[in-house]
């Protein structure tokens, strides 16, 4: 378990993994994956009446002979879908070095696996200076990424241009902020065939330690709260956390996505084999 971006671990894992693409139609450049649009693939999608302007090559002459009407074969297009990795660049992602490293590693792993899968990965980092990089530049961007945004992911997304259509969108964040979670998830899933919310959480996020008084300082806004971390207070935190997770998970499901919680304390391999198994499937190709 490294506290820095462990590119070697990512390199070891990426060749044997593939991103779990959704079964629905995709959008993208011409490729091998069935697209949502009609195209020239061999697989028949539908029949319809000919309309002026249609490709005459797609006329089903047998049907024309039988029915004496111009029947057109509608074939589904085959595209190469894109994968878009959104990485939350707020300060809370660097709550601990391990949390920051884990977030970087997961984003890099998604990019690497996507690239190997031919999905032309795109990385969107929502720091103070939002970045949008593609391809091999993702690795360099992740190396140089600073978790320095003083606002949460929702606010940061508002500063960015509207999301483009893509096949798969992987959002790496801790999702620990007060917001309209269903609206946020709906926005993240807009234009994507599938969305995975990868929630990276530190050990203190999952189970904060107590026993004494403390000045709780918000990592992003700097606001402070005096609190005695008694058992009651910790129990109240746990209750609110569970409720927050429930709402987030329900929002993800409504948007045909999934919430995957990745404890930063675990190794990358353990995460891939464990809670992130729905995203990273073994075998190299979906």
């Amino acid at each position: 378990m490294s506290e820095r971006l462990d590119e070697a671990a990512v390199g070891r894992l990426a060749p044997g993994l593939g991103l779990a693409l959704p079964r629905g139609p995709h959008r993208g450049r011409v490729g091998e994956v069935r697209a949502a649009s009609t195209g020239s693939a061999l697989e028949l999608h539908d029949f319809r009446a000919y309309q002026p302007g249609d490709d005459l090559r797609q006329l089903d002459w047998n049907a024309v002979a039988r029915t004496d009407e111009l029947i057109l074969r509608v074939r589904q297009d085959e595209v190469s879908p894109r994968v878009e990795v959104v990485l939350d660049g707020s300060r809370s992602m660097a709550l601990s070095p391990r949390k920051a490293a884990c977030a970087r590693e997961l984003a890099l792993l998604a990019c690497e696996v996507g690239a190997r899968q031919g999905l032309s990965p795109t990385l969107l980092a929502t720091g103070v200076r939002s970045e949008r990089v593609q391809g091999s530049a993702c690795r360099a961007a992740l190396r140089a990424l600073e978790f320095d945004a003083k606002d949460d992911l929702v606010t940061a997304l508002g500063r960015m241009p509207p999301p483009r259509s893509c096949g798969l969108r992987v959002v790496v964040s801790d999702f620990l902020f007060e917001a309209d979670l269903p609206a946020m998830v709906a926005r993240l899933s807009r234009g994507a065939a599938g969305v995975f919310l990868v929630q990276v959480l530190d050990a203190e996020d999952l189970a904060p330690t107590g026993g004494e008084g403390a000045r709780l300082v918000d990592s992003e806004s700097g606001a402070a709260l005096e609190e005695l971390l008694t058992e009651e207070v910790l129990a109240a935190y746990a209750r609110r956390f569970v409720e927050h997770q429930r709402v987030l998970r329900a929002a993800a499901l409504r948007s045909r996505g999934a919430l995957l919680t990745a404890p930063a304390t675990e190794t990358l391999n353990a995460l891939v084999m464990g809670p992130l198994r729905p995203l990273f499937v073994a075998g190299g190709r979906a």
Partner: peptide
Amino acid sequence: LRRRQKPVVVSALFLWRT
């Protein structure tokens, strides 16, 4: 003494605050 309590940085305060 109370002012010098150790600051603990957390990801979000809203889970702590009533």
